[in-house]
Computed example of a mutant assay.
Amino acid sequence: MTPKMTRWTLALVAGLMLTGLAQAQTKKELIAKVIQLQQPSVENVARSIAAQTAQQILEATGPAVAQQPADKREAVAKDVQAEVKKFYGDIESVLRDRAVKLAPTAMAPVLEEKFSEDELKQLVAWLESPTAKKFNESAPVLLETMQQKLVADTRGTVEPKIRTLEGTLRKKLGLPAAAPASPAASAAKPAKK
Rank of each mutant, 00 (worst) to 15 (best):
L12G: 06
I91V: 04
E29S: 07
Q25Y: 08
L111I: 02
Y88K: 10
V94L: 15
K4W: 12
K101L: 09
I91C: 01
V34T: 00
A51C: 04
A184T: 00
W126H: 09
G156E: 14
A22I: 03
T105K: 15
S138M: 11
K133R: 08
E119R: 03
E59I: 13
A50V: 01
Q25K: 11
A187H: 00
R47L: 07
A46F: 06
V94F: 15
R155C: 14
A24L: 11
K189W: 14
T145Q: 14
Q39V: 01
K192Y: 12
Y88H: 13
Q55V: 01
K86G: 00
A139R: 15
K78T: 02
V13S: 08
A108Q: 04
A185R: 01
K78P: 03
A24S: 07
L175D: 01
P183V: 01
Q81C: 00
Y88N: 10
R98H: 12
T168M: 14
A70G: 01
K192L: 13
Y88R: 08
L10E: 10
D118Q: 15
A75F: 08
T154Q: 10
D90F: 14
L30E: 02
P176W: 11
Q147A: 09
L58C: 00
L123W: 05
L37V: 00
K33C: 00
A50T: 02
A11F: 06
R170P: 00
P40H: 07
T19K: 07
K86L: 07
Q147C: 06
R163A: 15
M5R: 05
K192A: 11
L111W: 05
K171G: 01
L127Q: 14
E59R: 12
D97R: 15
V100H: 05
K133Q: 07
P40V: 04
G167Y: 11
N44S: 12
T105Q: 15
K28A: 13
K27Q: 14
P183D: 02
P104I: 00
A11S: 14
Q81V: 00
A179G: 03
K134G: 02
K134W: 08
Q122F: 05
L16W: 12
G62L: 08
A178M: 12
R163W: 15
A191V: 11
R96W: 09
I162Q: 08
E137C: 04
L150D: 06
Q81T: 03
A139F: 13
T53F: 05
A191K: 06
L173G: 03
P104L: 01
P109Y: 10
D71C: 02
K101M: 05
T6C: 08
V34Q: 03
G62E: 10
D153H: 09
L16S: 09
R155L: 15
A82W: 10
T145E: 14
D153M: 09
L12I: 04
K172Y: 13
T6I: 14
A11H: 13
K171Y: 07
V124T: 01
L10M: 15
P130E: 06
L120R: 01
D79V: 03
F115I: 00
D71F: 06
T145L: 14
E59Q: 15
L37R: 03
T145W: 11
Q148I: 08
T6R: 09
M107Q: 12
L143Q: 09
T154G: 02
M5A: 14
L12D: 07
D153A: 13
L18M: 13
L127R: 03
P69Y: 11
V94S: 11
K192R: 12
A66D: 05
L18A: 13
I49K: 10
F135L: 11
F87H: 05
A179F: 08
L165Y: 12
M17D: 09
L165T: 02
